[in-house]
Design a protein around this nucleic acid. Structure first.
Lengths: 144, 144
DNA sequence: TGTAAATACTACAAAAAGGTAGTAATATAT
DNA sequence: ATATATTACTACCTTTTTGTAGTATTTACA
């Protein structure tokens, strides 16, 4: 019922990067900000570069930036990419095969629950998060 | 983004038992019907007895039956019980602590997605599954 | 051109989840 | 009573996930 750690990290990292305005994020900097284990974080960043979310620059002053428009990256995409194919969309209970009868017993209730979630995750992009974050900032300033 | 295997098994077992009309289910029988590893299945059944979902009878002709009204067992309860406390209800991303700023960036979108799912899972009981299953049976008979 | 700051790659270690084995305990049937 | 069918307990093995280590490579800057 939970995302695995790696996916959680991925969302944290991309969510963080999407809402700040640096023009480059080094692994070291992200490690300090997000408290994700150094080496693991690095591997994940490299991974996300390979998957086309990020673009890496090696060498001094290097780091990572987005390689795609924030509007093009939904939460569902991140989860599916990191967690393996179609983590969200398949019948995770495996109910289509685990019980002799078909259709499986819980299939319908599960699919109903699931599809509600998928809708939200598919319709929320990093751009949405950024917008929300900045509105929140403004709102807080006004309250001061 | 998936339930773990153990929870999946638990749902499968309880779903199966809820929709049949045997008065006793032995581990061996359930193993044959559901293809869940023998020993693991047994341990899980014992576990579910300890958690009050089932009642066990030892010895020859023994087995497991429900120890509670089917109306009192929701899918959400099963998941939470097997998967550890509040698997469904807590902020699984850990976003309240993983980013220096609070509230966490994805908290809102995640909670929206999640609460939709929780609603369905909390409102569906094993009794509902049973009813649905039997209606389906009747419907299929009519089609023959 | 050498040094420092960064990513990239590969292999391994530790922890958690999933699964198995052996044996004890319990209850029924004959 | 004894054999058999069942659950209960404990320890261990396997696989997957998470995390670490060492070393190579790339690049900017003094």
């Amino acid at each position: 019922m939970t995302l695995n750690k790696t996916t959680e990290y991925a969302l944290t990292i991309l969510g963080f990067m999407a809402t700040r305005n640096e023009n480059m994020y080094s692994a070291e900097y992200l490690h300090n900000q997000l408290n994700i284990p150094r080496r693991y974080l690095r591997r994940l960043l490299t991974d996300m570069s390979k998957h086309g979310f990020l673009k890496s620059t090696s060498g001094r002053n290097g780091g990572f930036v987005f390689d795609r428009d924030l509007k093009e990256i939904s939460l569902a995409m991140i989860i599916n990419t990191i967690e393996g194919s179609d983590a969200i969309f398949t019948c995770i209970l495996g109910f289509s095969c685990c019980i002799v009868d078909k259709p499986c017993i819980m299939h319908d209730s599960w699919m109903e629950a699931r599809s509600k979630m998928v809708d939200t995750l598919s319709n929320t992009t990093l751009a949405d998060l950024k917008e929300k974050y900045q509105l929140d900032l403004i709102r807080n300033l006004k309250l001061l």
